[in-house]
Simulated assay, not measured.
Amino acid sequence: MKKLILAMGMMCAMAANAATLTQGQSIPTFELQDQNEQLQQVTAETRTLLFSRDMKGGEIIQESLESMGDKIPADLVYVADISGMPGLIAKFVAIPQLQKLPFAIALDREGQATAALPSQEDKAAVIKLDGLKMVDIQYYESADSLTKALQP
């Protein structure tokens, strides 16, 4: 039974990787609730999409945005896929902690809206958009390098 579950998990991971969007492709518009239950949208006006699929990537983005204070660009949207987090941990631990942050984090609780977005383990993804077309994708391993990349 364990082998079957492991094999199914590997097939799902391979299917997800096969469907990952790449530079030059367009992402669909979508909206998600943030940590304060406000709607956040990724639209044609979004120029920078910060994306994390794991805790380390999220920590890098959060540290970077906290250091930027009120200098966060208005056309930037931060999206986090928290679908892998156990529901009770998300509800009673993670989201209350995120509510203390001074910026919005669009939370993909189901993993469907962000399933095709590119990511790398333990890294923060910066996806530059032009009318929803991905014109550049970069990955960052530290908050300092991310902060430098986000400055005009």
Rank of each mutant, 00 (worst) to 15 (best):
E141F: 02
T22C: 03
Q41F: 00
C12S: 13
V126R: 13
V126T: 09
A113N: 00
A149I: 02
L150Q: 06
Q138A: 15
R53H: 13
I82G: 06
T147R: 14
A18W: 08
S64N: 11
S26L: 03
P118L: 11
K128M: 10
I89A: 14
E121F: 05
Q62W: 02
G24Y: 06
T20F: 08
Q33G: 06
T48H: 13
E66D: 05
D130M: 01
A80S: 15
G58R: 10
Y139D: 03
V93Q: 14
A143C: 05
G84Y: 03
A13R: 14
E31T: 07
E110C: 05
G57Y: 09
L65K: 14
A18Q: 09
F92T: 14
D81T: 11
G9P: 06
L50F: 02
Q35Y: 00
T20Q: 11
L39I: 15
G84D: 08
Q62E: 13
Q38F: 04
K71R: 15
A19V: 01
G9C: 05
A44H: 09
M55Y: 11
L107P: 07
E45P: 02
L32A: 10
L4V: 13
R109D: 09
E110H: 12
D144A: 15
T43L: 04
M55E: 12
Y78K: 14
G87K: 14
D122P: 02
Q138V: 11
E141R: 10
P118C: 11
K123T: 01
A116R: 14
V126K: 12
A115P: 00
I72K: 03
L76E: 01
G24I: 10
L50E: 07
R53A: 15
M134E: 02
V93F: 15
F51L: 06
M10Y: 11
D130S: 07
K128V: 07
P73G: 09
D122C: 03
F103S: 09
I89D: 04
F30L: 13
K100P: 01
Q35N: 03
Q138M: 09
L50G: 00
Q25C: 05
V126P: 00
V135W: 00
I72E: 06
E37K: 14
D130V: 00
T114S: 12
F30K: 02
I127V: 12
D144I: 08
M11A: 15
E37H: 13
L76N: 04
A104Y: 03
M11F: 10
L39P: 10
L21C: 05
A94F: 05
G84W: 04
A116Y: 00
G24Q: 07
G131V: 10
M85A: 14
P118D: 09
L6T: 15
T114L: 08
A44Y: 01
L129H: 08
A74G: 10
D34M: 00
I5F: 15
M134N: 06
M1T: 06
A18G: 02
P152M: 09
G57M: 09
K133E: 14
A143L: 01
E121G: 04
G9W: 07
K123D: 00
V77E: 04
L88C: 00
Q38W: 05
G131Y: 09
I127W: 07
L150T: 08
A15K: 15
F92L: 15
L117A: 06
S119V: 07
I60G: 07
L76R: 07
L117C: 08
D54Y: 06
A124G: 00
S142P: 02
